[in-house]
Design a protein around this nucleic acid. Structure first.
Lengths: 126, 126
DNA sequence: CAGTTATTAAAACTCAGTTGCAAATATAAG
DNA sequence: CTTATATTTGCAACTGAGTTTTAATAACTG
């Protein structure tokens, strides 16, 4: 249904994504905000922000859901189709501004795709 | 630690993968075999078969774990790096025999990558 | 300001996956 | 073949991410 009312929860959550390009897991957000916002609300607001094309989500290697800011998505179309990188050392998870070429598949209709890469990030690779 | 003894559980599970190229979820395997093998054992045998390079695993869009036969993997190296396709209509999930080009990432070390595509399979696309 | 409707918190629940431990069984040694 | 021992199994209880239900609360509309 998307966001209709500007509530405190929405504002607080949007704020967490405002000053960062990196993705945040639901777990991390609950850890940070769990005392101010109920976890049920956190889950609901996140999924509404996704519906609205403000955030996009993906599953990390551990099966936990991550969210990150969209750059050029709208409510009707999520156009953020890029790989996500998860660092095994520091845990930082980020969107990669790289084009993915989805392989041509004969006789199949592609709807969504997800590409996750695990490794060491620029700071941890040393 | 991998498989050391040839037990009935190992044989039954290997058999499920013997006559199919498609992937099987842990949920499906527990549904099929849960009366013959305890679910704990199913989970344990699957992960040992993965260690041995006989099966490989990946997470579906729902966060459930899927397993499929490896083609050219060994205990020391899992070389099955291909996309997986999950059909939204019939649920069939399969390995795609397509090469994925992992984008060149400067200053980063890539360890594992996972590419999942969701859509309609050749039978359901009609 | 009052009425309507979306949003929230809280608690209980779901369900995939894990853990600890005692009993069972495959394999190696004698 | 029998015994010793180390792996494997089943069971029950647990973990933890995410969901559902319901009553109370807060944002918008007129």
């Amino acid at each position: 249904m998307g966001i209709i009312r500007k509530t405190e929860s929405v504002e607080i959550l949007l704020n967490e994504f405002h000053d960062t390009e990196t993705a945040l897991s639901t777990i991390e957000l609950i850890k940070r905000l769990g005392k101010r916002i109920n976890k049920t609300t956190i889950y609901r607001v996140l999924s509404k922000l996704e519906e609205d094309g403000i955030l996009h989500s993906f599953l990390g290697f551990d099966g936990v859901k991550w969210f990150a800011r969209c750059k050029a998505c709208t409510r009707s179309q999520h156009s953020d189709v890029h790989p996500h990188f998860q660092c095994i050392s520091c845990g930082k998870t980020e969107c990669l501004e790289v084009k993915v070429n989805i392989p041509k598949l004969t006789n199949r209709e592609v709807l969504i795709s997800q590409f996750i890469i695990k490794g060491k990030c620029n700071l941890c690779v040393a």
